[in-house]
Design a binder for these strands. Structure first.
Lengths: 348, 348
DNA sequence: CCATGCTGCTGAAACGTTAGAGCAAGGTCG
DNA sequence: CGACCTTGCTCTAACGTTTCAGCAGCATGG
């Protein structure tokens, strides 16, 4: 392969054609392995292209073929906020993996700010910079998402959107996971006074986990007066929520936080108050994106297969783009991961 | 703005031109705010474009202008490996933030596998899919990096590359940070028998942190027989390294691990052996990407400004692309973050 | 009143690719 | 031996944009 200092004109089909003494079309067709090009010629053109370091210009190719070979991962909210979350990383791993396997590229697009939301979502697709988009973690009441889905452009949503009937989405079992971890506290450890630190109520995830929590408690002793305090998925809000819960109910036996970060915040608060986890109070989280394994005690939580979510979302988006789409919402199973914060003995 | 179901032809300049009753060029120039277009016409074209939902086709624009408005973030190694690392997330935050502020886009590209490394690096740039690239966390002996830099394409390297003289790079103070944290152990806590768990020696970061460690110890009592065991930056290797260190030197007073994950691995090993941190043995790490804050005791570490690294790398890449480049390696300062694992009292 | 200059637009070319129609040469068949 | 197919290529027209030369129309200056 040839390389040289900056400013060098890129190698185009024309260069290869000139070198091979054939037409540009012949080169294009040869590289595309068109049957109407002779085997000898193909051979020669291929090695010549390799030798000259020819790489097809993606803009020209996209323009001509009306396809960019790129999909966009759209992350609402500002970069800072969402990238920080390990959830996003895992999603990215899944998406990027799957895309790589198919020779496609990934355009990562964050929303600079809420107000321009409308624009940022659609620009990417309407400019044809991406053939389709995966939209991660938008709020349920985000009008832009509805608009985008409605525009008919290929879009896969991550998470549940009960309000958008014809959306293609990939989500995770939030209700049953929340139910399972709460039931663990109740059935295995015999706790009856369990509170929930929920996420913000404009996220479907928060709603579903709360529903699961309630379902687990339904019919049990403490069901009717189970406390619920809302946080915003941040460690700090978890800490404040725990504080509030303990003020209201000093006798609390267990806390189920809607994600691990809030659980960690709660852990700090409990620790600060001299309460031992799990001896004095049990604590469980949700997500299992790294935090839960590191704390002491390690958090019992619900493992969310975020990598797989990314993978499936990508597969379905590519299907959608290829027109072999199956509409509908897909839900991936979660698993209960028992560690120590619920009162179970350490495994290691 | 107009929207409609899939299959609808995109709105082009021609559509706007037809609607406005002017030529395509006039529309193009009006939208670009060219001085030779009358104010009235501009006004009319702008509102018409808005109304029709015109968004310029990025492929056509790139093709014509020879610029994609996109930069690539290239991550060697497979996605799984690197994305998992919080370092990368932070880098991504910085890059994405800075890019957003300038209206540019981000193409994230991982290397499917080591063998095709050469191809994956260069394809992105040679295909002109990106105007330039930021290459994150490659090994010092990676020939591909040298090739890429040498090819004259706009590339900014993340990390130190002493071997590549004319590289544009953004790195972090590894020597002085390692020195500072080691000296903290020695001077403040009076420890003399300190060992180092290093990273893999084909990473400049590992080399520099080791150099800093040695420099801190130079001239002190235990300098000459300070133990060093190499890990691979993983938690598991940290645990194994700690094991090895303790076998060799049961009297060890302190361990400086080259990153927090290995420090956490070491912590697990120490805990398993019934050694208390920091009472029986002090432990410090490097990076401060989330892990160190969560453990008990929280790890004293060196905070690496990864977001800022991403930001600076982006700025310099854009300068490079615009031809206003300043060559040279840039090094960002780190800060010593004292927590509890060194023996200092808890702050909260 | 004609040369000159400005203003505001149009026309054409180019960016690099792909794909289908076209065409020459050679082979096959009745 | 001419009609016809096959093979292997070339030609041409797009894809949607940007940009620059050109050209009317009008005002200005000598």
């Amino acid at each position: 392969m040839a390389n040289g200092k900056s400013g060098m004109r890129a190698v185009t089909l024309a260069d290869v054609a000139a070198a091979a003494g054939v037409s540009i079309s012949a080169v294009s067709m040869a590289l595309a392995d068109h049957p109407r090009i002779g085997a000898r010629t193909k051979q020669q053109i291929n090695s010549l292209a390799e030798e000259l370091g020819y790489v097809s210009n993606s803009a020209a190719r996209s323009l001509r073929s009306q396809r960019s070979g790129t999909i966009a991962l759209i992350v609402p909210n500002t970069g800072q906020h969402v990238f920080g979350h390990p959830y996003f990383m895992q999603l990215l791993v899944g998406v990027s993996d799957e895309l790589n396997a198919r020779g496609a590229s990934l355009l990562v697009s964050t929303n600079p700010d809420e107000r321009h939301g409308v624009v940022a979502y659609e620009r990417v697709l309407r400019s044809r910079a991406g053939d389709g988009a995966i939209v991660a973690s938008a709020a349920v009441d985000d009008v832009n998402v509805l608009r985008l889905v409605d525009s008919g452009l290929p879009v896969v949503l991550v998470g549940h959107y009960p309000a958008i009937a014809d959306a293609v989405s990939v989500a995770v079992e939030d209700v049953s996971g929340a139910r399972a971890v709460t039931e663990h506290l109740h059935r295995v450890h015999g706790l009856t006074d369990i509170a929930h630190i929920s996420g913000p109520m404009n996220h479907q995830t928060s709603i579903d986990r709360l529903v699961g929590f309630r379902a687990a408690l339904a019919g049990t002793e403490g069901a009717d007066d189970a406390l619920v305090v809302a946080g915003d998925f941040s460690e700090d809000s978890g800490r404040r929520a725990a504080c509030e819960l303990l003020e209201k109910r000093p006798s609390l036996q267990g806390i189920f936080a809607a994600n691990d970060e809030m659980a960690y915040g709660a852990l700090l608060e409990l620790r600060a108050r001299g309460l031992r986890v799990p001896q004095d109070i049990a604590l469980v989280g949700y997500d299992d994106f790294g935090v839960s394994r590191l704390t002491t005690p390690a958090l019992t939580t619900v493992s969310v297969p975020a990598v797989e979510v990314g993978r499936r979302a990508t597969v379905r988006l590519l299907e959608l783009i290829d027109g072999v789409a199956q509409e509908g919402q897909e839900t991936l199973p979660v698993t209960l991961t028992i560690r120590e914060s619920c009162g179970c003995p350490p495994t290691t």
